[in-house]
Design a binder for these strands. Structure first.
Length: 421
DNA sequence: TCTGGGGTCCTAGGACCC
DNA sequence: TCTGGGGTCCTAGGACCC
């Protein structure tokens, strides 16, 4: 009995989450915007049917959306993250081997059953997730992760399949022959262009490419993708979440920023946010990279982006230490007279707290551990900005826009939905 | 006026070492 | 004329994912 992969993919996840707490939106077009209300990053089926495209800048289609009575939301990650963990917890209850692949996708192992019953099982899984969490999902089943992804897409595109498709019980070549190479998992825009130049346009073409050619032109990852299309599993199920190798925090500003002082406040704020996640992972950072940039789309201003890597004298998880290294370096990147649009920080060279080897020559920082722990506890209990470093500023006029955000229905006592008042 | 954010992996090339 | 060879580590850049 061979093992199969199933991909469980939440349909239009963010839009579905918004609908959960506002049933008036059922049957209506819904879109969700990226941070800073910049681009469209999720669309309900009705919005897709109107021709609203993924990634379109909001300001360019705002009028169109209004004219078609589309419900528009800022992204509400507290809500989506919480609904995601409910879906994933349910899957773990139903199946022993689950890999949470992203906020809205999970891979499972299924054992092959005699013809047909696997599809029936998928249907049952789908109905259970819908009934327990309110989230509609599609399920693709195949002998490799890449084929399960193909199957999932087929399931989503063909209403007749009712959300489940098992490619292992189908004519694989016939399906791959009608599946664009550009839509294969692992083939992005650049590789798709490169493939097209060689006449490779379908997943079947890709599957049938010579190994040597694939290795040379698409690197080892491209060869692996082709092998997976042939039904040879190269990418296994990762059940244990691996700890992060880097932690980033970067955001566009809600308005143009010109002064070094404002940039410093923003950067200090992002360092704080990254450091909280660093400590949650019980890790220390050896290095950080800071960056600032102007609006890359602007035709009227000079494009500028600067980044600088800072190696710390010893690994740390202290917000104070990180800010103290980040801010002086920022002055070196800052060029007066420009209108900045974005700043960010990446913490990397992460090591587990428990593996820390103190540097003989660096001053040991004994107080910051308990101080940061207290800070995280207080902010965890009373809200993210209850206590913060003064360097992060108070008014934060550069903070990004989120004008259409729904309530944190499931994660904040103040924002619980009222059923009957 | 207004165009997201947070990750991973692979490769090529240079530095360095013996 | 003619200037080793092989290994490792690091980094920047490019590609991908959701």
């Amino acid at each position: 009995m061979s093992r199969l992969f199933a991909l469980v993919d939440c349909n239009n996840f963010y839009a579905s989450c918004e609908r959960l707490f506002d049933p008036r939106l059922i049957g209506k077009p819904v879109v969700v915007l990226s941070n800073n209300d910049g681009c469209i990053i999720a669309r309900s089926n009705e919005a897709k049917a109107l021709g609203v495209r993924m990634g379109d800048p909001y300001f360019k289609c705002e009028k169109f959306l209004q004219a078609h009575d589309v419900a528009v939301f800022s992204s509400n990650y507290a809500l989506y993250g919480d609904i995601s963990s409910r879906v994933m917890a349910l899957l773990r209850r139903l199946e022993p081997a689950v890999e949470v692949y992203s906020i809205d996708e999970a891979f499972l192992h299924l054992s092959a059953m005699a013809g047909g019953t696997l599809t029936a099982y998928g249907g049952q899984l789908r109905r259970t997730v819908l009934r327990w969490t309110g989230i509609p999902v599609s399920i693709g089943i195949g002998p490799t992760k890449t084929l399960a992804k193909v199957a999932g897409r087929v399931a989503k595109k063909n209403a007749a399949l009712q959300g489940v498709f098992d490619i292992s019980g189908a004519d694989v070549d016939e399906i791959l022959g009608r599946f664009a190479a550009a839509d294969v998992w692992g083939i992005g825009r650049r590789l798709a262009e490169r493939l097209a130049l060689s006449g490779i346009t379908t997943a079947l073409d890709l599957k049938n490419c010579g190994d040597e050619w694939l290795r040379r032109n698409l690197s080892i990852t491209g060869l692996r993708t082709a092998m997976e299309l042939r039904g040879i599993s190269c990418i296994s199920l990762e059940e244990c979440p691996v700890s992060r190798k880097s932690i980033a925090s970067s955001k566009s500003f809600g308005c143009q920023v010109e002064s070094l002082a404002a940039l410093k406040e923003a950067l200090a704020t992002y360092v704080e946010q990254a450091a909280v996640r660093l400590r949650a992972q019980h890790a220390l950072a050896n290095s950080l990279e800071i960056s600032i940039s102007t609006n890359r789309f602007s035709k009227t201003t000079v494009p500028y982006s600067g980044r600088r890597v800072i190696t710390l004298p010893e690994p740390t998880a202290s917000t104070t230490v990180l800010i103290n290294h980040a801010l002086p370096a920022l002055a070196g990147l800052y060029q007066p007279g420009l209108r900045y649009q974005k700043a960010g920080v990446v913490l990397f060279g992460l090591v587990p707290e428990s593996h820390y080897q103190p540097n003989l020559f660096a001053g040991q920082d004994k107080k910051s551990g308990p101080l940061m722990a207290a800070l995280d506890r207080i902010n965890g209990k009373w809200g993210r900005c209850t206590i913060q470093h003064a360097a992060a500023g108070l008014t934060k006029p550069w903070r990004n826009r989120q004008q259409k955000k729904s309530a944190a229905y499931t994660t904040s006592w103040q924002e619980l939905p009222v059923v009957k008042a």
